[in-house]
Design a protein around this nucleic acid. Structure first.
Lengths: 99, 99
DNA sequence: CAAATAGTTGAGCAACTATTCAACTATTCG
DNA sequence: CGAATAGTTGAATAGTTGCTCAACTATTTG
């Protein structure tokens, strides 16, 4: 069955999971997605970064299966793919707000 | 009353909180501390890094008030200072282990 | 079809990070 | 006291990261 819960793979996966939430831009992206699906263009406007910067971050989050993207015409819509991450996010936020 | 929950300070604090857990060495340190206080020497041995590397990481974690250190003679003992972080850690671990 | 719009991709770069090394402080022990 | 042990500190460095820029693909619209 499962070996020790902290084999090297688990350690790096866990670090990688938290790493997804370790940057202000990604925090804002995930926050914007908490209420539901959002377009890439909206994210760009909201974040005040270039489309490129946002696209790069979205790719990283998609590679980690934290978000999902859906293309409709020339627009791309983004939503949370990993609901557990919402829970981590909320708990982290609760902690820093009323800690 | 409370401002918007995502003012820039909160965003950067939240990123910083998750950042503390975003590195394999720090994951192993916190994991080692879950059962209680551990000596720096034990950590060094367990991690297979130099005393210096471990000390640098411990300083970072202490600066963020995630761990606390206590000196006894020439030894330094480390323990978790922020119990909320244990909860985040456990939830992250649960997530990568079972689903 | 061409022009416009939405987003992606890869290169390049400045800033940051995790580690090591060497020198240091602090404590114990003979 | 001096030697040994435990840990810290700062500089140097190799590697990573987040962003921008320019060029690209894909889609819609005239």
């Amino acid at each position: 069955m499962s070996k020790n819960t902290v084999n090297p793979k688990n350690v790096s996966d866990l670090a990688s999971l938290f790493d997804a939430l370790s940057d202000p831009t990604r925090i804002l992206i995930i926050h914007a997605l908490l209420e539901g699906e959002v377009g890439v263009g909206e994210l760009v406007e909201h974040l005040g970064l270039t489309k490129s910067a946002v696209s790069h971050q979205l790719r990283g989050l998609r590679d980690k299966r934290i978000i999902r993207t859906r293309k409709q015409g020339r627009n791309v819509f983004v939503s949370i793919d990993d609901e557990h991450v919402i829970d981590l996010f909320q708990r982290g936020l609760d902690h820093i707000l009323h800690g």
